[in-house]
Design a protein around this nucleic acid. Sequence first.
DNA 1: CGTCTAGGTTGACATCTATCAAAACAACGT
DNA 2: ACGTTGTTTTGATAGATGTCAACCTAGACG
Lengths: 123, 123
Amino acid sequence: MTKQSGALTLIDLDTATPCCPPLAQQPLPAETAAVLAPAFKALGDPVRLQLMSMIASAPGGEACVCDLTPAFELSGPTISHHLKTLREAGLVDSERRGTWVYYRARATILRQLAGLLAADAPS
Amino acid sequence: MTKQSGALTLIDLDTATPCCPPLAQQPLPAETAAVLAPAFKALGDPVRLQLMSMIASAPGGEACVCDLTPAFELSGPTISHHLKTLREAGLVDSERRGTWVYYRARATILRQLAGLLAADAPS
DNA sequence: CGTCTAGGTTGACATCTATCAAAACAACGT
DNA sequence: ACGTTGTTTTGATAGATGTCAACCTAGACG
């Protein structure tokens, strides 16, 4: 579950993306758009966006599912499903340690997405 | 269509959002996530992401629908629908000038979204 | 007015998505 | 082995989404 040995994730942004000529600098090639869009799509749900921020801002850089789930009025399976979506979008990694599963944000991807949206115009 | 006089758009990010404590700095409140998610959602489609980049990178900062449509192998209505989605997400503005309609990126929002994703950790 | 062209709206349809209950799986404690 | 607790998978369902064809609207130009 944790280490996606080899090429497991649907989208491996790290390798597949030359990435990040700021959006406003030059038109995104269709292939690049196709690779990046799923990441934005994953962030396009309020629950997942909140999950993402909880994970990214968690002390130690990781958050336990057991801490994430009770923060929402949603069933366990639903939270698990959203976490899976984030994982498949390449936004987080998961690791099981004993009974609990911890999620960790992939800073690289976040930085890439931020760079994409960054206005080149300084202000 | 162009000036949303008063409060028209579903999401008015400019006013509704205190916005942009970097995602990884503190957990996003549910209400903020609910406001921001639709913007990411709008970017979560390859066609719209490409449209967005074409508009944002267009000379003069604006692009005519007549230039956008032929760049895709999609029907006019479909492109129009995607542009509407971007508009309702607060990502673009549209203005009719004579026969043609021009779309323009909202730099403010893009900067807000970029700020959200920006890793506070320098590297 | 009539008519052309550029865009948008409506209606329909196939696919995807968010959600839950129920079941399955994983690790720990007895 | 057995039961308990944490997490994921499966199946089902209501609702959202992307797409098109057909139709409608807005200007421009005679």
